[in-house]
């Protein structure tokens, strides 16, 4: 599944770039994330407990940052698997200065692929698009609040 979109963060690109790669910030912003633990340069082990209405699922996986070009772009690769299925997202994030007055802000646009497998893929098709959008929205909303 292709995913794309953009959000605006109320900080300058340099700051946006920094928080988007800050494991402490990412851990707080990623919905259901229960912690990121560095296991290599730009690579983290992740634990998630995704709760969505009655649905709940624990996932373990990795977050990796690649092709970093500060402060304009990087790739974010997220992989997780659990009993109910597995998820893989691979997206290119691009940051650009938004010319908005009065305060400076950054447009973060993303484009990539999301793969879902296991039970989730087999029974969740109807809801994958909407819920992935919701997760991304939650992620960026939280980032906005953390950016201040």
């Amino acid at each position: 599944m292709k995913i794309s979109g953009s959000y605006t963060l109320p900080v300058a690109p340099e700051r946006a770039y920094q928080i988007l790669q800050d494991p402490a910030v990412l851990a707080q912003a990623m919905p259901g994330c229960e912690g990121l633990e560095q296991i290599g340069p730009n690579e983290y082990r992740m634990k998630m407990n995704v709760i969505l209405a009655a649905l709940s699922g624990k996932f373990e996986g990795k977050v990796r940052i690649a092709d970093a070009v500060p402060p304009t772009s990087f790739r974010l690769i997220v992989e997780g698997s659990g009993r109910i299925g597995f998820l893989k997202g691979d997206g290119l994030l691009k940051l650009s200065l938004a010319n908005t007055n009065p305060s400076v802000s950054t447009v973060v646009s993303y484009e990539g692929d999301a793969h879902v497998g296991g039970t989730l893929a087999a029974v969740g098709q109807r809801l994958i698009d909407g819920t992935s959008k919701m997760m991304l929205k939650k992620f960026f909303d939280k980032l906005v609040s953390l950016a201040h």
Partner: peptide, 14 residues
């Protein structure tokens, strides 16, 4: 089946 070989019509809701 999607490109990864997941059967995306895996139950009677789809």
């Amino acid at each position: 089946y999607d490109d990864d070989g997941q059967l995306t019509t895996g139950e009677l809701m789809d």
